[in-house]
Design a protein around this nucleic acid. Sequence first.
DNA 1: CCCTGATTCGC
DNA 2: GCGAATCAGG
Length: 118
Amino acid sequence: MRWNRRELAQLKQLWSEGQSAAQIAGHLECSRNAVCGRLTRLGLTRGHKPPTAKPKIRSVPKRGPTLMAARCDRVRKKLPQKALETRPQEMSKRQLYAILAEAVRNTVRAIGAAISRV
DNA sequence: CCCTGATTCGC
DNA sequence: GCGAATCAGG
């Protein structure tokens, strides 16, 4: 459907008057979905379902068995090749302890400095 | 089940 | 960009 200037004006007008999407769709002789889609694209909303109101995990719409595979491929393409090949280097227990010890020393020093300032 | 608006995604 | 399909809520 082509949305000319006039139809857009009607859309905005009726929507601002509080008409439902279905009613507007009737006036414009198109589907309710078309109206909703256009409104979304225009950034118009009545906050009927605010994003923060009821956060729920949206169930994955099933639109074909290859959907998952396609998405995985899309992600894979964005990753640099090295990220797929190289493995994160393992750290020895000794190295981990060294890091922890340094963190502790830093913390102790920071606290000591703060106390001496009081 | 009916309605509502909101969102996704193939085209 | 469009809208059918589908979502979630009342």
